[in-house]
Nucleic acid binder design. Structure first.
Lengths: 229, 229
DNA sequence: TCCCGGGTGATTGCATGCAAGTTAGGGGTC
DNA sequence: GACCCCTAACTTGCATGCAATCACCCGGGA
């Protein structure tokens, strides 16, 4: 018996989608009346949605000054990776004893598919990698069956960071990243949580290096992403 | 140039305080009109505050059915401790190289004061322990200077759990807990992050055992805290 | 006695109105 | 020409009104 979503929920999800897809760039102004008109609702559910997204860290609100899509510094980006590097290995280790053979096969299929579309050559499609990667990590987190850890992780990963991922990977880092996925599957097959944890730790460290380097290139170390300074 | 807080912010903070102090028990109904009247504002800021506190996990809202103070199962309680046992040791280790002598002295003073009011005998005052403990941990988290990890921790610790802490400690666990604080100070003095991390890990494990035991006693393993079943 | 259905009072969800605060632009002064 | 102040349009913050939904209670039937 699923409950019909309220306008505020729809507004919140729509806004989140717009931000995650990049239709609303970091730093973009979010006027209440403008959004209300755009989404066909009144200002009230828009306000509620903005407040909620602010709690999630996706938007920033200044009293009497309105809301903007959240921005972040390189330091904050590194902080997010610190958090991921504690939580995701732990979640991965949790997943190991809970993974049934069918689950492992599913993850294996995802990892193989990522090798196909991510490998070098004319068939490389970095955009197709994003949903596959997301599916892999989501599946792993679901297997861990640990809502509290999962919630902490989801709250911290400002998905704007995740979104434009593989465009910034150099070839070696990308190869490493794909290999990590396969190795995690191997660790799951072996039922070795320590192995899985270690690979995931390396996986995050690799991603961290790539993302931090890219962020420094585009924004410099001091300015906020989305600001024009 | 501090900005005067809005009504919604005041409402949110007031509500949070009421919940944390236990004036609003887990499971208690939070009617919008009732709260609005009680706090002297209209329903709008109350709605905003409830939505925000729902995002923080302090209240639970059911569409068209209103909000209640959040409840939790023993499994969720254990999940929170899983999270703490990953985050707090890490934060503690981070704090070690950043702690200046004055900071260490401050923490030492708190730890000593906790021994005074927490030690057995007629001068024992378990209620006084709560703010001291909170100050100790908050100070440590602040020293780590890691907003992302700190935010993840703060978001997860449903403080109703933290609040009524030391009343449930048996004497041995309490002695252990107080000793941990002193030992963390020692590790800080020695500048040894691994030592500090290990002690904090033990500290959380000790607290976890106490809290889970207490929760099982009062609620049974299946029911939710705050429900009368 | 227990279960089920209809009506009613209360509560939430959303829209809108008004006041306070903020930002932008123009005129005046140094 | 640069800076500042003052005004005006706009935006947000909050209050309130109305419709939709829900919980509760009561009566009827098995």
């Amino acid at each position: 018996m699923t409950r019909p979503p309220t306008s505020a929920e729809r507004t919140r999800d729509t806004l989140r989608g717009l931000i995650l897809q990049g239709d609303l760039a970091p730093g973009a102004r979010l006027g209440e009346v403008e959004l209300a008109a755009r989404l066909g609702v009144s200002r009230t559910p828009v306000r509620e949605a903005l407040s909620r997204l602010a709690a999630e860290g996706l938007v920033e609100v200044a009293p009497n000054r309105g809301a903007r899509v959240a921005t972040w510094t390189v330091a904050e980006l590194e902080g997010v990776f610190d958090l991921r590097s504690v939580l995701e290995p732990q979640l991965t280790a949790h997943a190991v004893p809970r993974a049934r053979p069918a689950d492992v096969e599913e993850l294996d299929a995802l990892a193989r598919r990522m090798h196909e579309v991510g490998g070098p050559g004319p068939r490389q499609d970095l955009d197709a990698l994003v949903p596959l990667n997301r599916a892999f990590h989501d599946r792993l987190v679901a297997l861990a069956a640990h809502p509290t850890l999962a919630a902490a992780l989801a709250a911290a990963i400002h998905p704007p960071i995740v979104r434009r991922n593989f465009l910034t990977y150099d070839e070696e880092s990308l190869r490493r990243s794909l290999a990590h996925h396969s190795e995690i599957v191997a660790a799951l097959r072996a039922g070795d949580p320590d192995w899985a944890r270690a690979v995931m730790t390396a996986h995050i460290a690799n991603a961290r290096a790539v993302m931090v380097r890219a962020a420094r290139r585009t924004t410099g170390t001091a300015t906020r992403e989305g600001e024009t300074a």
